[in-house]
Nucleic acid binder design. Structure first.
Length: 820
RNA sequence: GCGGAGGUGGCGGAAUUGGCAGACGCACUAGCUUGAGGUGCUAGCGGGAGCAAUCUCGUGGGGGUUCAAGUCCCCCUCUCCGCACCA
């Protein structure tokens, strides 16, 4: 057969057309050990965009193909997008989300959502922006409402002026919106819907033990910090004198502390400027001062703010010692954590120390280091924050900190002025959004009945078609009377529909469950089907979701378990976080304008090259810097493969077969490497390198390869290339005269014997330095290795006149002669 | 400040269990092919010395363990990521 040029465009279009609608990957529930792979996509409208997507596709798709060829069940939600269509896909990928929320742009956006931005699968038809998906989001919402897991309250919330919507705490990055990294988030008090993720805080933390080993340590640490459990006690200090606003003596001021054992060292009580007592105790001037403090803090890096405070004029009583201490207001006490009030123990807390020194408040040490002396005031340079022995603390003196903490908390409970308490940093998930898109929250506000859930049979509540984008910060849905004006399902009177929509992270919290049963009209999914597939064996996604999607979906799983839908407590046993795509040292984002098109690459060199280039750029857990210079090398390589195959297949060969052994050895070595890498490390860059080495050998030995060896090499080459370059592999498969899909074939097995070298290369070292190599059969006994090395001519020049002290041998590998 | 991951040629990276540092690719150089450009093919390519064989230095810096260290231990340094007045 004459050599053919590698026309990637023609090959890829041809197979794309033939594959369209075919069923390459349908999961079959026929295996004893089902395997379930989900590839995570970045949700719209993340900054990393489509290059990140292609990376996802490339990594996950290569894995899925391999697993499939190994006979595993694979549920592959990316569907056809995963093939990286040469032109069409590139065109879709290029339609990035519009900046202006005009109707036209939204219509365009919805198109791209379906195929690309949201997890959508041609085969399984799970698209999170369809009414059918809204239905089940709303169904879950109603279930949570029933159980008190969804509630509405007025709260200070994060507000992004650019998005003109509320954001969850998880979506605030360094005080700015996760979508607009240069826009500080404002705090606004609004009526909002929340999901009670805090009810699961303990379980989310506890169940992480199951994930250890399967999830990256980094992600687990981030989640642990985010949940921020801390054990301590809540203690009531009593307000002493009658205060303004009729607060009488004895009014409790509850503080949270992790160190009750230090309470005899408490020299003042400090309230957050937003604390409710501030309004009651302070006069107008004082309240204004507190307000100014709150404003000064907004949008600033906490580390840059100097500690600042003032005396309230009031006093509180320490319930343990009976001591009267001043009440202060200070900017470093946060209303959002604990009780919004603290007892300051300057001797044993760095922040309190700094604050009290600034304002001349007493510093009184009450904890002595286990093997040291109690610090003396004056003269303390810094707070002693470790555990130690309690001193000067009445009946508690002499106890170790740990014991004192326990006993003192129990004492507080006994006497009714406090109790042991656990505080979490994580807050409930605010899900209200004032955007056009997203699932409408299915409730109705009735002037008579209050908040009334939409009856289940009326679901889904869908978005109206014609809307006007207001950008005013109120939901555009408010201006659509036919959407807003409804009758109350309870009393039949006039009522208003809720206009907030749900955070789109709701969608991604359970989409992968729907993949197991995408057409179910009665439930989100059949629990039996989910029980068959779940837990997910391997989930793949970006690190950037460590505390967004990955915590929400864990919460959803637990919630679904509690309403009897699933049996598993965790969604995925193993998590692989692939590295981000970086451009010029910065994370790609449209606001930075540094998004480079993968479409250019796909158009110029084809989808196979684009995918393989991304896989070759580095190991998948690492970030990759997006530079396309190396792409030509991959394209060249694929061309070499194709030309080699076309000019050698179907040829009447007169070759001697002198190189058969060499070629087959390289083949089986490459196969071994790829098989092992797919099973363990997923370092596809080295897999591809090994195929390149094989091709280099094939070129060098071309003409000396016998017909049988050639046949084996070329066939296996097509199979081992299939996870990386699907179109080319299929084309080669056809060139070989084989029937059907290359992906329906079994993954080729390697022969360890053929992969072995004939002779072991023994490195000969003298004093640890490489001096020579000798070649001996595998399994040569130690003495013979030694003898061989000492007899070697090159080695001997380094041994001459020296005294051999010691010889170290590693079988089949190395001899090190130590001389003096 | 706390927690995590890192630092290997001009570049991306390889070295999986302490055993040949730099696989594979890019860029670069030379040769062949060609009317020319491109493509393709062949070869070279860490620094220093040498015509060469070869020698020598070399994995951020310093020390240690070992016959042997990119890999293990200690100290330092720099970079990236996450968290951060969380009581």
């Amino acid at each position: 057969m004459p050599e053919k040029p590698y026309d990637h465009h023609q090959i890829e279009l041809k197979w794309f057309e033939r594959w369209r609608g075919a069923d390459l990957y349908r999961a079959e529930e026929n295996s004893a050990k089902p395997k379930f792979y989900v590839l995570e996509m970045l949700p719209y409208p993340s900054g990393t965009l489509h290059i990140g997507h292609i990376r996802n596709y490339s990594i996950g798709d290569a894995l899925a193909r391999y697993k499939w060829m190994r006979g595993f069940n694979v549920l592959h939600p990316m569907g056809w997008d995963a093939f990286g269509l040469p032109a069409e896909n590139a065109a879709i990928a290029n339609k990035r989300p519009p900046r202006e929320w005009t109707l036209e742009n939204i219509a365009a956006m919805k198109k791209t959502h379906r195929r690309f931005a949201f997890s959508y699968d041609w085969d399984r038809e799970v698209s999170t922006c369809e009414p059918e998906y809204y239905r089940w989001n709303q169904w879950f919402f109603l279930k949570m409402l029933e159980r008190g897991l969804a509630y509405r309250k007025k709260a200070l919330v994060n507000w992004c002026p650019k998005c003109a919507t509320v954001l969850a705490n998880e979506q605030v990055v360094e005080g700015c919106c996760w979508r607009h990294e240069d826009t500080p988030v404002e705090q606004r008090a609004l009526e909002q819907w929340f999901l009670k993720i805090t009810a699961y805080a303990d379980q989310l933390l506890e169940d992480m033990k199951q994930l250890e080993g399967g999830w990256p340590e980094r992600v687990l640490t981030m989640q642990r910090n985010w949940i921020g459990r801390s054990e301590g006690a809540e203690i009531d200090f009593q307000l002493q004198e009658p205060g303004a606003g009729g607060q009488g003596p004895g009014t409790p001021i509850r503080v949270f502390t992790t160190r009750v054992d230090t309470i005899y060292g408490a020299t003042c009580v400090i309230l957050a400027p937003e604390h409710p007592l501030v309004a009651k105790l302070l006069d107008d001037a004082g309240q204004a001062r507190a307000k100014a403090m709150v404003d000064a803090r907004a949008g600033r890096d906490p580390g840059d703010i100097e500690k600042d405070g003032f005396f309230s004029g009031h006093y509180a009583v320490n319930p343990y010692s009976g001591e009267r201490v001043p009440i202060w207001i200070a900017n470093f006490v946060l209303m959002g954590y604990g009780t919004g009030a603290i007892m300051a123990v300057p001797a044993h807390d760095e922040r309190d120390f700094e604050f009290c020194r600034k304002y001349g408040i007493t510093v009184r040490p009450v904890i002595r280091p286990v093997d040291g002396k109690l610090a003396q005031e004056p003269g303390m340079q810094e707070a002693f924050t470790d555990y130690g022995i309690v001193e000067n603390s009445g009946p508690w003196s002499g106890l170790p900190s740990e014991e004192a903490r326990r006993k003192m908390a129990a004492y507080a409970k006994e006497h009714g002025f406090g109790e042991a308490a656990i505080t979490y940093r994580i807050k409930d998930w605010g899900i209200s959004r004032q955007r056009y898109w997203g699932t409408p929250i299915p409730v109705i506000h009735c002037p008579k009945c209050g908040v009334v859930p939409v009856p289940e049979e009326q679901l889904p509540v869908v978005l109206p078609d014609r809307i006007e984008i207001t950008g005013t910060g109120r939901s555009p849905l408010e201006n659509v009377p036919e959407f807003v004006n409804v009758t109350c399902p309870k009393c039949g009177g006039a009522a208003k529909r809720e206009t907030d929509t749900m955070d789109t992270f709701i969608d991604s919290s359970w989409y992968f469950y729907r993949y197991t049963d995408p057409h179910n009209g009665k439930m989100p999914f059949d629990p039996a089907k989910v029980a068959y597939w779940f837990e997910i064996d391997q989930y793949i996604g970006g690190v950037e979701h460590a505390i967004l999607h990955l915590i929400y979906s864990r919460f959803f799983t637990k919630m679904m378990r509690d309403i009897g839908l699933v049996r598993n407590s965790e969604p995925a046993q193993r998590l692989f976080t692939q590295g981000m795509v970086i451009a010029e040292g910065a994370k790609m984002s449209k606001s930075k304008g540094n998004v480079v098109g993968a479409d250019m690459l796909a158009e110029k060199f084809g989808a196979d090259t684009a995918r393989m280039f991304i896989l070759f750029a580095g190991p998948p857990e690492k970030e990759i810097d997006w530079r396309t210079e190396g792409a030509e090398g991959i394209y060249r390589f694929l061309g070499r493969v194709y030309r080699f195959v076309t000019r050698n297949v179907g040829q009447v060969s007169s070759a001697t077969g002198a190189s058969d052994r060499k070629v087959l050895r390289k083949l089986h070595q490459a196969l071994r490497k790829i098989t092992e890498d797919f099973e363990t490390r997923w370092h596809f860059n080295t897999c591809i390198a090994s195929i390149m080495e094989l091709i280099n050998v094939l070129y060098a030995e071309e003409g000396n390869i016998g017909a049988a060896a050639m046949e084996e090499v070329v066939e296996k080459l097509a199979l081992m290339l299939a996870p990386f370059a699907p179109y080319l592999s299929q084309e080669i498969w056809e060139e070989l005269g084989k029937e059907g899909s290359v992906f329906r074939q079994c993954w080729p097995t390697y022969d360890p014997e053929l992969a072995k070298e004939d002779l072991a290369e023994i490195v000969v070292q003298v004093n640890g330095k490489l001096r020579s190599r000798i070649y001996l059969p595998f399994g040569t006994p130690t003495q013979e290795l030694e003898a061989g090395a000492l007899a070697d001519e090159k080695a001997r020049t380094f041994l001459e006149g020296k005294h051999v002290v010691k010889v170290i041998t590693v079988p089949d590998k190395l001899v090190n002669v130590v001389v003096r």
